[in-house]
């Protein structure tokens, strides 16, 4: 009978991790924001009231109203529909601008962290060189070489961004190697590949994933900035940075044009950050 109670408490303990995360209002709000954003990104046509590219010279620069909650732009297009259609591009940025950087960075970071030696020395110098430049300036330099456009922008952000993942992973892997389970793997005669990817990485990955969430928010910001500067998405593509840029000339007469996409950026960014915080608790192994 006592065995039953023991297993019940353990059940309770296992469950409580998710419960603790769900009890944090931040995590719940973040999850809701990102869930809704994902829906908008996947099926913007379902939610947008108008065609985002439908030009109507009769309804130019109308302030927010019931018919057009976010107003209309200088070509009479519905701002709400354009902000919603922009979700596809901007959420895509969050993923495409980070996922390659993360995979490559984690891979390199794990290897240099595990093997150290000369490769690690070179890596260290490389990191020093890259992080002394402001991120945005470096990305702009790469885009300038490759030429503007979304794909080139993803390449530029990935080329610079992997370094941050690699640095973080390297530090975590080195910290994990201080644990005897890593030594035990060597003594057991396991291959380096198994020790790195089966033992060290699963324990080192939590802060990387948390950082990834923040980085997705940053990627949206960065992508919009480049769109604003004309280096990322190109008009008439609906993209928040592009939308803000379009509204720039009318900021005193049609403030909603720049404000609404700005709010979308802030809310989505907040969503990723909140999820990141909650994940940190959820993924931490118990000891």
């Amino acid at each position: 009978m006592s065995d039953v109670t023991v297993s019940q408490t353990q059940q309770a303990l296992k469950k409580s991790k998710l419960q603790i995360a769900l009890r944090k209002p931040g995590f719940v709000i973040g999850a809701i924001i990102i869930g809704l954003s994902a829906m908008l990104a996947i099926a913007p046509g379902v939610f947008a009231p108008y065609d985002p590219n439908l030009i109507s010279y009769l309804e130019v620069k109308q302030p927010p109203s019931w018919a057009h909650p976010f107003g209309t732009d200088m070509l009479g297009r519905d701002s709400l529909s354009r902000v919603i259609w922009a979700y596809t591009v901007n959420m895509q940025m969050a993923i495409l601008a980070t996922v390659f950087a993360m995979s490559f960075g984690v891979f390199v970071g794990a290897l240099v962290g595990y093997y150290r030696g000369i490769a690690d020395q070179i890596f260290g110098r490389l990191v020093d060189a890259i992080i002394t430049f402001p991120f945005l300036v470096l990305v702009i330099a790469v885009v300038a070489v490759l030429g503007p456009g979304l794909v080139n922008m993803y390449i530029a952000i990935s080329v610079v961004g992997w370094v941050y993942y690699a640095r973080l992973t390297r530090a975590e892997v080195i910290a994990q190697m201080g644990n005897d389970y890593a030594s035990a793997g060597v003594v057991m005669g396991y291959s380096d590949r198994r020790i790195i990817f089966r033992h060290l990485l699963p324990n080192a990955i939590t802060p990387v994933i948390v950082y990834w969430m923040t980085d997705m928010a940053l990627a949206i910001l960065l992508g919009s900035s480049l769109g604003y500067l004309g280096l990322g998405a190109q008009p008439p593509q609906a993209e928040w940075g592009v939308l803000i840029a379009e509204g720039r000339n009318f900021i005193t007469t049609a403030w909603w044009l720049s404000l609404m996409p700005g709010i979308a950026i802030v809310i989505t960014g907040l969503g990723f950050s909140l999820i990141g915080d909650g994940l940190a608790d959820l993924l931490r192994p118990r000891t």
Partner: peptide
């Protein structure tokens, strides 16, 4: 190993 808290992979 000595430390029973670090010699097993926690995952």
């Amino acid at each position: 190993f000595q430390d029973p808290y670090s010699s097993l992979n926690p995952r």
